[in-house]
Simulated assay, not measured.
Amino acid sequence: MTTGLRFGAIPANAVHLCVDMQRLFAEDTAWRTPWMPHVLPVVISLCAFRPERTCFTRFIPARSPGEGRGTWRRYWERWASITLEHLGEERVELLPELQAFVPPARVMDKVHYSPWTDARLASGLMAGQVDTLVVTGAETDMCVLATVLGAVDLGFRVVVVTDALCSASDPSHDAVLSLYHDRFGQQIETAECEEVLDAWR
């Protein structure tokens, strides 16, 4: 697989989009992502580098089972233990180590895998003339995947930081990274944090 920043330096006005690094994925829940503590130091280093260029997303579960439209209703019946009335609203918070970056970092809440179904994120980035996104977070094969593919459709250059991603499924994590290389090579670059930081200075 070809990795690295094939299309040059990362512009100063790029945004670090950190996906769903929340307590509900790190703590003892049905959605616990075992690798999250391991990637957290890498995510912290990116946040600390450009906190004012960082935007966190948070996945907000339904309040109770059976809420939601279409298949989301069935989804929240299946994942009743993750609904707010069972989980507790405090579990949707960012990991404590990341809360320290807000502000100047921003937080955007979403109720689906993708942050793009609400036009506020895209319109805000475009108003700021942002054309490059540096993506980290969880899970590689769920919300990160939805974030990345939506960004591609909107025309952003996407840089995925491979050592700052995590998933509950190692095979799916690996498969998604292979997919980026095999099918999206003109729009998605993958690189480790050290290379990203060097290219963004």
Results as ranks from 00 to 15, higher is better:
V152R: 12
V152H: 09
V152P: 10
V152F: 10
D153Y: 11
D153V: 03
D153K: 09
L154E: 10
L154I: 02
L154D: 04
G155R: 02
G155S: 04
G155P: 08
F156H: 02
F156P: 03
R157G: 01
R157S: 02
R157F: 03
R157I: 02
V158T: 10
V158H: 09
V158Y: 09
V159Y: 08
V159L: 08
V159H: 12
V159D: 07
V159S: 05
V160L: 11
V160W: 13
V160A: 07
V161A: 07
V161T: 04
V161D: 09
V161N: 07
T162M: 12
D163Q: 05
D163R: 04
D163G: 00
D163L: 05
D163W: 08
D163I: 00
A164Q: 01
A164V: 02
L165I: 02
C166H: 05
C166S: 06
C166G: 12
C166V: 01
S167A: 07
S167Y: 05
A168E: 09
A168K: 09
S169T: 04
S169H: 12
S169P: 01
D170L: 11
D170N: 00
D170I: 04
P171A: 08
P171I: 04
P171C: 09
P171K: 06
S172L: 14
H173F: 14
D174H: 14
D174W: 14
D174R: 15
D174S: 10
D174G: 04
D174V: 08
A175Q: 14
A175W: 15
A175Y: 13
A175G: 10
V176R: 13
V176I: 14
V176N: 03
V176S: 03
V176W: 12
V176D: 05
L177G: 05
L177H: 12
S178F: 15
S178N: 14
L179A: 13
L179F: 15
L179Y: 15
Y180L: 05
Y180K: 03
Y180A: 01
H181W: 10
H181T: 09
H181L: 06
D182E: 14
R183Q: 12
R183C: 11
F184G: 00
F184H: 15
F184I: 00
G185P: 06
G185H: 13
G185V: 00
G185S: 12
G185E: 12
Q186D: 11
Q186V: 00
Q186L: 07
